[in-house]
Design a protein around this nucleic acid. Structure first.
Lengths: 249, 249
DNA sequence: CGTTTGGTTGACGAAGCTCAAAGCCGGTGG
DNA sequence: CCACCGGCTTTGAGCTTCGTCAACCAAACG
């Protein structure tokens, strides 16, 4: 292969979860695909759409969400470099939720059929993909608990921790990051209103758990304290990022 | 086989989702297992436990749940006959949530290793199991939206619809059922307090959406109205129970 | 029968929502 | 280079939904 392995970011998590040898890794990154730039705040998969592709985030941040009857929007997960979004939709054949970008995103669009064939032909690859969806499910469970049983401040702190952990896992600076979400979006992810999110962020800053140089930047002052305030225990993310654990425990 | 196929209830959903021929079905119901009676309100899998078994509900109702730091409990899913609970825990190797019975349950305890081997040896079986976990994930997403973005009455109505649909799918009378949950448990599933659940149930009864002959029995007066009140669209359960759809659409 | 478990009620309080206005900042076009 | 515009954030006042606390009740159970 002379081409750069565009799909390489996909391997990071899959390798964590299954033993993939070189040829298996090569098969994965050699999947047919096209690269698409998607502008910020753009919905590119809609609830009800038939699904023919699986999307891999190459850069930027995107979210999955559902609308409820009253018009409210609930973000159900947040994704960044290396995440396969929409494999769930893809395997089920029809989208039961939407996918939007937060920031401008570079996405790889992988047709589902070759992916399916590859996973059918190689049990280890199928295991890796299955595992990926299992971890997604684990994160959903935590989110149900987060929006169902934690108060506003804890909820927001928990989300900040999860985002920080994921950013760290892909090598971004988790201590001092330009925050990818507006307060509107934070509200949709936590089941709160934007106004209340605003007040919660101020309160977290007053407690020195985060610093806010600009409205959108988040500097995590003290990981342990923020994790404690957010009732955050990182196990459910199943990253086994040992180097991170000391921050929380 | 002279023995009764104890594990048969497992096949109902798996057959919906993958083409399993007779030999594959036989292989599944022939998995080694033991049958265990579990008394009501008993936690038999705990967060943090190493997982060596996968549990199949043969009769009764059980739930998966998580505790949060403040002591609150959040139920994240409800299960009944034919549901494989804990396969997610099992595949990930360590429980990230607990499992409890609501009513007295007859459970089949299936050691994970033979199940893993079977699914490794037969791609169609692995697909069926994968699909089962994908549908679980779809239901989790809906729950995130439910507790995050719906008001108390809508939330409770939505849950009643989901339970009714699932009961119907296994051949129980969904119109008139002895309700499997206490108001405490309903509260833990909807992210509300038991007191408020009580008032919501009364209000639903006043609106003639449900009838309450005894505190625990629920008669659904008008499916379409309850589904409308609960913002319930059954697609996310992925049962393809066509015969049920007319009730909601 | 007492005891337990779950359901019901009322009074009160608080977390979070609504609505509306104003401020801030970066981008754009004159 | 400046004025304007749109998207996002911030603030305040008032209000609603839901939670808390505490008592009482009813059926089930041993």
């Amino acid at each position: 292969m002379t081409t750069v392995a565009t799909l390489e970011p996909m391997l990071r998590k899959l390798k964590l979860w299954a033993n993939l040898d070189d040829s298996q890794q090569l098969a994965l990154v050699s999947l047919p695909h096209s690269v698409v730039m998607v502008e910020k705040q753009k919905t590119f998969v809609r609830d009800g759409d038939p699904v023919k592709n699986c999307w891999l985030v190459l850069s930027g941040h995107c979210v999955r969400f559902k609308y409820v009857g009253s018009g409210g929007r609930q973000i159900v997960s947040i994704h960044m470099t290396g995440d396969l979004v929409d494999m769930q939709n893809a395997m089920l054949g029809i989208a039961d939720h939407g996918v939007s970008t937060l920031s401008p995103c570079k996405m790889a669009k992988i047709p589902i059929e070759p992916l399916r064939k590859l996973s059918d032909s190689d049990p280890a690859i199928k295991d890796a993909l299955w595992f990926d969806t299992l971890v997604d499910a684990s994160i959903f469970r935590e989110w149900v608990a987060n929006v169902g049983r934690r108060d506003a401040a804890t909820r927001v702190a928990h989300l900040l921790c999860e985002i920080g952990l994921k950013m760290d896992a892909i090598g971004l600076d988790a201590q001092n990051y330009e925050f990818p979400m507006t307060q509107d979006q934070l509200a949709d992810a936590t089941g709160l209103t934007p106004v209340h999110v605003n007040r919660v962020l101020q309160s977290l800053a007053e407690q020195k758990l985060i610093e806010r140089i600009t409205p959108r930047s988040v500097v995590i002052g003290d990981w342990k304290k923020l994790a404690a305030a957010g009732d955050f225990r990182p196990d459910y993310v199943h990253l086994d990022a040992m180097k991170l654990k000391h921050r929380y425990n």
